[in-house]
């Protein structure tokens, strides 16, 4: 399978601040890829470099087979981009926005008509053609923005934080739309800081402080990190257990989930060590099992400072 995107040693500095630190990766055609990371991790900057919105300080990016630096116009014909700001003209109507972007993408009248009804359908906007965009509820506006960004059926679609600030119902509808686009064969790149959305992606690239920390499919990543010293303590007294284990220096992280306490125990023979503490403090009613890590666990683990006292 060929690659839709190939990035090698991409770097972007803003003054002395390194936003993206020589990252390399490739994206296979037709995949849905999620860039995951906290604010400031470098996700948006990476996307902007791939779209040609920002010039990389160094490094190279091949998008849809073209070098972004050398043939930006070729790249643009093949990509769609939607930013976190929903870049629609708020003082134009739904119809006028679609017509404008269709015109800008050079669609013929027939194509435009065809795509217009497509957008109306997928964005659930039938009957609202003549509403001003600023009067639309956020969820609709967002889907309209996506519709406008893919009017020209781009091979690659970049979505920068498309779901920030919307409720879960709308978020799910939006992901359905993404699934539909992907079904039509488009490669989709999404940035998000909602880890649960990562499960919708075929591939995940986790970023932290400008670097890629993890790259792979959700299952692959989970498999890769299956031997993390992560344990689940099932107990009737989760709060007491939590308070006890948290004090131990070798417990690098602990969290309560209902009647369970999840702990990272970075020590040899962790199970007996945990048992020891709990018994010593008079807690007998518990069961320790080895837990398989969630993506969140892995993300938290990988983005935690390597040195110093971990915070809880």
């Amino acid at each position: 399978m060929s690659h839709a995107i190939e990035a090698s040693l991409l770097t972007k500095n803003f003054g002395s601040f390194i936003a993206v630190d020589s990252i390399s990766f490739a994206v296979e055609e037709g995949k849905v890829v999620g860039f995951i990371g906290a604010n400031g991790a470098g996700k948006s900057t990476t996307i902007k470099m791939l779209c040609g919105l920002t010039k990389p300080t160094s490094g190279e990016a091949i998008v849809a087979g073209f070098d972004v630096a050398k043939h930006p116009e070729k790249v643009r014909e093949n990509i769609g981009y939607m930013s976190q700001k929903f870049s629609l003209y708020s003082d134009l109507t739904v119809k006028e926005n679609i017509e404008f972007y269709g015109g800008v993408y050079g669609l013929s009248n027939i194509e435009l008509r065809d795509r217009f009804s497509w957008v109306m359908e997928v964005a659930d906007l039938k009957g609202r053609e003549n509403l001003l965009t600023r009067d639309l509820p956020l969820g609709w506006r967002q889907r309209l923005a996506l519709g406008c960004a893919v009017l020209h059926r781009p091979k690659i679609v970049f979505l920068d934080e498309p779901t920030s600030g919307v409720d879960p119902v709308i978020r799910n509808k939006f992901w359905q739309l993404i699934g539909q686009l992907s079904g039509e064969g488009a490669t989709i790149i999404v940035t998000t800081h909602h880890l649960e959305e990562a499960e919708f992606c075929e591939n995940i690239i986790m970023m932290h402080l400008g670097k890629i920390v993890v790259n792979g499919s959700p299952e692959g990543i989970r498999r890769q990190f299956s031997n993390l010293p992560l344990f689940e303590i099932e107990t009737a007294q989760p709060l007491n257990v939590f308070n006890l284990v948290e004090l131990e220096p070798w417990i690098t992280d602990a969290a309560i989930y209902g009647n369970n306490v999840h702990v990272y125990a970075e020590i040899e023979a962790p199970v007996s060590a945990i048992e020891g503490i709990l018994k010593k403090n008079g807690i007998v009613d518990f069961q320790i099992t080895k837990a398989s890590p969630t993506l969140e666990d892995i993300f938290v683990k990988e983005t935690r400072p390597k040195t110093g006292v971990p915070n809880v």
């Binding site: 643009r76 769609g80 930013s83 700001k85 870049s87 800008v104 993408y105």
Partner: peptide, 14 residues
């Protein structure tokens, strides 16, 4: 300010 310019830049519009 409205962010629409980014959208324009990624289109093939020169």
């Amino acid at each position: 300010e409205n962010g629409t310019i980014e959208q324009i830049v990624v289109t093939p519009l020169h």
